[in-house]
């Protein structure tokens, strides 16, 4: 149901709300009235829906479908897709292979629905030969994968949509704006009166304090397990899986929040940090970013 509603907030402000990428989304534009916000909200929402449709793995006929059904053939991708793939390749190189566009295949064996259990190690093992960016031949704009491999843009699409939607808003209005897609958000500048955007971060972990962040400009992304985990034999299996082993990293933090210049950057850092397991804090420190880790 693709609609945008303008709603009144508790502090008297307005928010344009819509659903995209299975998340509740909102757009705040400082100083805009209901009509203006409805228009700007629709502009942001359409961009999010466009991105969702373009790289959804469930949509037949899109570029992801074409790549994943290429069966070993070389596919030439459009410029925007090439940009996203190039970005993901940088993340792969900068994370010692932890971030991997081809890891989505592991969803076949890992489920975090109610009552799900840990998969059969043999089933995980059987998927590994079809996973790994090093098995992909990428020479922009040409991409060739081994038959049976799949690309999944789920790890970068949402954050990219936040950045794109904010960029469109910045072009359409001179008013300060903030885009929030299910807790991953970005703002283009301080509010008109010079104050910052106050954001409560839901780490997705029960009984932990909700950090309040004052954001002037830039982005904040959070990766929390939001009850998506399995407990077996006293061990906790989080929902972020290491493509190199097919298993969640041991002692992964339950939630990681990172501030970055862009949501794409912040989101990538949260995901990679979780894949560093117990070393998440140390790794984030070495990246010189502001972060918050819940273990």
């Amino acid at each position: 149901m693709q609609t945008v509603r303008v709603e009144h907030l508790a502090d008297g402000g307005l928010a344009a709300r819509f659903q995209a990428m299975a998340s509740p989304c909102e757009v705040l534009v400082d100083g805009a009235d209901e009509n203006e916000l409805a228009e700007l909200g629709l502009l942001a929402a359409r961009e999010c829906w466009r991105i969702q449709a373009k790289w959804s793995r469930y949509q037949a006929g899109n570029i992801v479908d074409a790549i994943n059904s290429a069966a070993g053939q070389t596919i030439e991708v459009d410029e925007e897709t090439a940009g996203l793939i190039e970005f993901a390749a940088q993340l792969h190189a900068g994370s010692e292979g932890r971030f991997d566009l081809t890891a989505g295949l592991l969803r076949r064996v890992w489920s975090f629905r109610e009552g799900a259990t840990v998969p059969d190690p043999a089933a995980v093992e059987a998927l590994l030969p079809h996973i790994g960016w090093h098995r992909v031949v990428w020479q922009a704009p040409a991409l060739r994968m081994l038959p049976g491999m799949e690309l999944d843009f789920g790890g970068v699409g949402k954050e990219y949509a936040v950045d794109r939607a904010l960029a469109l808003l910045s072009q359409a209005t001179s008013r300060p704006a903030l885009v929030n897609l299910g807790g991953d958000l970005a703002a283009n500048r301080a509010r008109s009166d010079g104050s910052c955007w106050r954001i409560g971060i839901d780490s997705g972990v029960d009984r932990t304090a909700t950090p309040l962040i004052r954001l002037t400009r830039g982005a904040v992304a959070t990766s929390g397990d939001h009850h998506r985990y399995i407990t077996l034999g006293g061990r906790r299996y989080g929902h972020v899986i290491d493509p190199r082993t097919g298993w969640p990293p041991p002692q992964a933090p339950r939630s990681v929040t990172v501030a970055g210049a862009s949501c794409s950057e912040a989101g990538a850092l949260t995901t990679i940090a979780i894949l560093y397991g117990a070393d998440a804090g140390d790794w984030l420190r070495s990246q010189q970013v502001d972060f918050h880790v819940v273990t």
């Binding site: 940009g83 950090p211 982005a219 502001d290």
Partner: peptide
Amino acid sequence: RNRFAAAALSLLGASSAATAHADD
């Protein structure tokens, strides 16, 4: 700056913010 900030910058082009400014 970290390498991911720079990589994201080239993904998004010049329109994105140059630096983050978030604090508590």
